[in-house]
Design a binder for these strands. Structure first.
Lengths: 225, 225
DNA sequence: GCTTATCAGATTGTATACATGTATACAATA
DNA sequence: TATTGTATACATGTATACAATCTGATAAGC
């Protein structure tokens, strides 16, 4: 199934895509989809061969991803998919609660009819999704669509990065069958409150949603070590 | 457990400083001190010559700084010191208020005697400082010392980046004579509330401090364009 | 047996050289 | 005069080559 998604990266008048961008996007996507696992090493030569380029633009891409918190670079040792411990996961989730409820509260008064419809249609799509990768992508799109009306680009970028660096753990051990129903119900609660223009309620549901996610991540994360 | 994860790298501490780090730190400092002005171009060759290295590690440093929001990179055009507009300044200040009051509230219960003394001594130093560069550095150190006891490294890094990307505007047109007294008084208010372990009051004073800073930045920023 | 030393192979870091894109100045044209 | 096209200089992007560093396995020492 092919879905039309809103363009994710706000490109400042870029006419074309540079090699480092292409590589960074590939790695970012692979990490989001858990095709590249936490702790896994990313070898420059291997990536360079895969894209038919030299290691220099690959290094640029890895630096970029380091800035987004997806990759850790150790001098003379290499690049590794970031693998935060439980405490760091908690820390990032608390930051997400802070920033995402903030963005949502700003967004609620600004929602247009089209923006509501986009959110609704994304939820409808979520119902019929069975595999992790698609769920992850559409879930991401739904949350992005929720916050987008706040119109604060730097805030949205920050939220994107924080989500990206921890959300993959939610999809690592769990299957859509297990988390699907809870997630969908919570998403609908949030959206409904937004449609009623009740920012405080929406933020409350969002916080509950995130705290439940954190609890699930914590429970499986403890097993993983 | 189906998936086996590689062991986490145990050594995040860096024994030595790499060339890109040295260059990044130099540029970062120069931007903080307003020796490099907003909008100014950073040429790779020039920086490479200055440090006696090639452009490759310079490029690494610029990528790093891009991730911190201090530098904007335009493909085939070059690197420029970031020059946020008034709306972006407002946005970042709101984020700072959100994150810094959050960190401070977490920090207040954790303060040790030594940490209070560090804050006090930094304020004492601030009294006898007359030039912008020193003021900026010690002001930065005071705020960092305020939030450090929250012990959340990722949060602290985020705050540092946000401060760095906008705080320099506060020192761009104003002189210590003009902003010194207000700043010092507000800093003392905040610290005193912390010492009384009154987190809510401390956060309130901090927010007022930041809002006044924003107002000053806005007033001169409008002139600067 | 356990720890430490050592060395080859592999991987990253950087310098150099070349390719490509961009900006400035000037000429050509309407 | 204003606009468009073109040449040149310059800065950035990337490939290649080489140097520095790390890893892992084997050997030496206690």
């Amino acid at each position: 199934m092919i879905l039309e998604m809103p363009e994710r990266i706000a490109t400042p008048q870029l006419k074309y895509r540079t090699a480092p961008e292409v590589v960074a996007e590939y790695i970012r996507d692979a990490i989001y989809r858990n095709e590249l696992l936490p702790g896994q090493q990313l070898q420059q030569e291997e990536l360079a061969l895969k894209f038919g380029i030299s290691r220099i633009p690959v290094r640029d891409a890895l630096r970029q991803l380091q800035g987004e918190g997806l990759v850790d670079l150790y001098p003379n040792r290499g690049a590794f998919v970031s693998n935060p411990g439980v405490e760091e996961l908690r820390e990032v989730f608390e930051l997400r609660i802070l920033l995402e409820t903030y963005a949502l509260k700003l967004a609620v008064p600004n929602f247009t009819k089209q923006e509501f419809e986009l959110c609704s249609s994304l939820l409808t799509h979520l119902e019929s999704v069975a595999n992790r990768a698609d769920w992850s992508r559409i879930d991401q799109a739904f949350h992005a669509a929720l916050y987008a009306p706040c119109k604060q680009s730097r805030t949205l970028t920050l939220i994107d990065n924080l989500r990206g660096s921890v959300n993959r753990f939610y999809f690592l051990y769990l299957s859509p069958e297990s988390y699907g129903p809870d997630c969908l119900r919570e998403h609908r609660q949030i959206l409904k409150a937004c449609q009623k223009r009740d920012a405080v309620a929406a933020a409350g549901f969002l916080e509950a949603h995130l705290r439940r996610s954190l609890a699930e991540v914590e429970s499986v994360s403890a097993v993983g070590r």
